[in-house]
């Protein structure tokens, strides 16, 4: 039985693990929350949504007596993770973080949840899209960009996501509002898109501001405009599209949500906790360093925001033949 002796330590660990499990299995009527809360990120570990989720969890933890475990449930353009939360027990122990992809995927993907099937409780902040061009393209202003695209339709190659992705939506909106014609080149994620504009494979991109801020400062790439209400804190010198006479506001955003049917007391408790976390100056400082815009909102305002976003997005998806799953 050398087997036994060699594994003495492991056996002890296993025993402890099993005992620990038995000990914490009794879900008593303790005040909420009495056990760990799970935060579901609907994109893979390492991405922007994951970083945001883990940061929120880190700071929300300080306001709770229980830990928050972050898990990544990814796949199907973010729809798998949302389904995971939507189908979870509505006991308040499962929360999720999501972004603009939900609004698009409910029309594109027949198996994605619609917005009504989840309960958004807190807005974290927007991640506005921007328009970047290579400096050697000779284009210096938004006006020149539109002009170039008009004189030579489809001559500008724009790097963006696959159809339905945030930067693809931004590019499509840009085409629609300014009635120009670009060649949309799809990439899998932001990093390859960044590489594409730097290497000159594409002339412009519709990425979030922070993706190319260094190159903008170094003069390699020029950010022509930001698609948000206000200027971005990382690029205060870059005017918004609105300032330049084009009413275009789009991009990603992030919000915290629950499955439908969480008891009201737990619902308002979590809403309060996350709202307080977002307003925590320490959190905001850390978020700013990670290039996240923080504009906290409570549940009602968040719902209104998403509804407006939905209303603005639907016609574009319809026009791009992307409405396949459900009609509005």
């Amino acid at each position: 039985m050398t087997f036994l002796i060699n594994y003495r330590n492991q056996i002890i660990t296993a025993l402890i693990a099993i005992m620990a499990l038995v000990a914490c299995d009794n879900r008593s009527e303790a005040p909420f929350p009495s056990e760990p809360i799970t935060l579901v990120v609907n994109w893979p570990a390492g991405g922007g949504m994951d970083r945001a989720g883990r940061l929120v969890a880190e700071y929300a933890r300080k306001r709770l007596d229980v830990p928050i475990a972050v898990i990544n449930v990814s796949g199907a353009g973010g729809a798998t993770g949302v389904r995971h939360v939507a189908d979870a027990d509505p006991d308040g122990y499962t929360v999720g973080i999501l972004g603009a992809s939900l609004v698009a995927s409910q029309y594109i993907n027949p198996n994605a949840n619609s917005i009504d099937e989840i309960d958004v409780i807190s807005f974290i902040g927007p991640d506005p899209a921007a328009l970047q061009v290579r400096s050697d393209s000779g284009i210096n202003t938004l006006e020149e960009y539109v002009e170039t695209a008009k004189t030579n339709p489809a001559s500008i190659k724009n790097g963006n996501d696959a159809p339905g992705g945030v930067s693809h939506i931004a590019a499509t909106l840009l085409q629609r509002i300014t009635s120009i014609d670009l060649t949309l080149v799809p990439y899998r994620g932001y990093a390859p898109t960044v590489a594409a504009i730097i290497s000159g494979e594409v002339q412009s991109t519709t990425l979030p501001v922070h993706q190319l801020i260094d190159q903008h400062e170094a003069g390699e790439v020029k950010i022509l405009g930001v698609m948000s209400e206000e200027r971005h804190f990382m690029a205060p010198d870059v005017p918004t599209f609105k300032e330049q006479g084009i009413d275009l506001i789009t991009g990603d955003w992030r919000a915290i949500y629950l499955p439908n049917g969480v008891p009201p007391d737990r619902h308002s408790f979590l809403e309060k906790i996350f709202y307080e976390t977002m307003n925590d100056p320490e959190f905001q400082e850390a978020a700013e360093r990670l290039s996240f815009f923080i504009t906290p909102m409570m549940a009602d305002d968040t719902k209104q925001f998403i509804e407006d976003f939905d209303t603005a997005l639907y016609p574009i998806l319809l026009e791009s033949d992307l409405v396949k799953a459900r009609q509005k």
Partner: peptide, 13 residues
């Protein structure tokens, strides 16, 4: 039983 205890315990842990 021993194998189960160790295997399941370790993986769970």
């Amino acid at each position: 039983g021993l194998g189960t205890l160790i295997g399941v315990g370790l993986i769970y842990f």
